[in-house]
């Protein structure tokens, strides 16, 4: 990979047959002062193979973001372990790129400066940084917008910059937390297709979180359904055998999609209803 960034901290080469990312029987508890600890997720095992696109769906508040934070190394599991290419993860996951749910662009940096911030952290030469930054901005369709500040960009453009920022580091594992949930439907479909095209070209391991089942099916090789919290765990796993390359808008009309959707939804619906009932109880209790 000449001319591109090499991941730092990738000293452990890992086994060739190992999953890119494996959560093994992980649990995560949050201690709250004066209250019993809250167990967000418990007994979750999942693996993402190199080049595989896996989505996780589940009701709001079930622990999807917690799962990604564990994979990124931002949280440590209370039980179980996280493995990256076969080696146990300590600290931050240096082989992962993380696109968070919230708007994480630095408002004091232009689009280009935001795109290259990770490359700066790696201490790459200035010219190389600028060249790669422009290349990535162009790849996400923002050539010519490099000098804009985040507040001068639309929500969709900001997400594109964040995507460029994450991908510019060429991570082997891409973690995405409901990246398109704040976008309008048209922008969202455009971004989904662009994401698929970018992924198709490089085939990294992707762990994608969403609460939108359509999105999960349209993008993924595999969809994992999480139960309602507390102690959320996987209640279903579905292989998505739709042909690639896909167009996320067209594919929704195919019979296979409709069939898969019906099967996964019957699994997900119970959890969503449970979660909804809990929220109502909490609101009234």
């Amino acid at each position: 990979m000449s001319g591109t960034a090499t991941p730092v901290g990738a000293a452990t080469p890992g086994r060739a047959d190992a999953a890119a990312l494996a959560l093994i029987d992980v649990a995560c508890r949050f201690a709250a002062a004066g209250k019993p600890a809250y167990t967000a997720v418990a007994g979750i095992s999942l693996a993402v193979q190199p080049g595989e696109f896996v989505s996780v769906v589940g009701p709001t508040g079930c622990g999807k973001s917690t799962l990604l934070n564990l994979a990124a190394g931002l949280l440590r599991p209370s039980a179980g372990s996280v493995q990256v290419f076969g080696s146990p993860l300590h600290g931050i996951n240096a082989r992962a790129g993380y696109l968070l749910q919230s708007d994480t662009l630095m408002p004091w940096r232009t689009a280009l400066q935001n795109t290259v911030v990770g490359l700066e952290y790696r201490g790459l030469p200035k010219q190389q940084i600028a060249a790669q930054g422009r290349e990535w901005l162009a790849r996400v369709g923002l050539a010519g917008f490099g000098d804009r500040y985040p507040h001068q960009l639309s929500g969709g453009m900001r997400k594109r910059v964040a995507l460029a920022q994450t991908l510019a580091l060429e991570p082997d594992i891409i973690l995405m937390d409901e990246p398109f949930s704040a976008l309008d439907v048209q922008t969202r479909q455009l971004m989904e297709n662009e994401l698929l095209a970018l992924w198709q070209a490089r085939r990294k391991a992707v762990l994608f979180i969403t609460h939108d089942l359509d999105e999960a099916i349209a993008l993924s090789d595999r969809v994992i359904v999480l139960s309602a919290g507390p102690a959320s765990h996987a209640v279903g796993e579905f292989d998505i055998d739709l042909a690639r390359p896909r167009d996320v808008a067209d594919i929704r009309a195919s019979a296979r999609f409709v069939d898969l959707h019906a099967r996964i939804w019957s699994c997900l619906r119970d959890e969503v209803l449970k979660s909804y009932a809990q929220q109502r109880a909490a609101a009234h209790g």
Binding site: V8, G9, N69, A72, G73, L74, I92, N93, A94, A96, G97, Y98, L99, L100, T104, V117, G118, Y121, R122, A162, Q165, T166, L169
Partner: peptide, 8 residues
Amino acid sequence: ASSRVMGA
């Protein structure tokens, strides 16, 4: 969080 994952 995102800066830390990017290796800052």
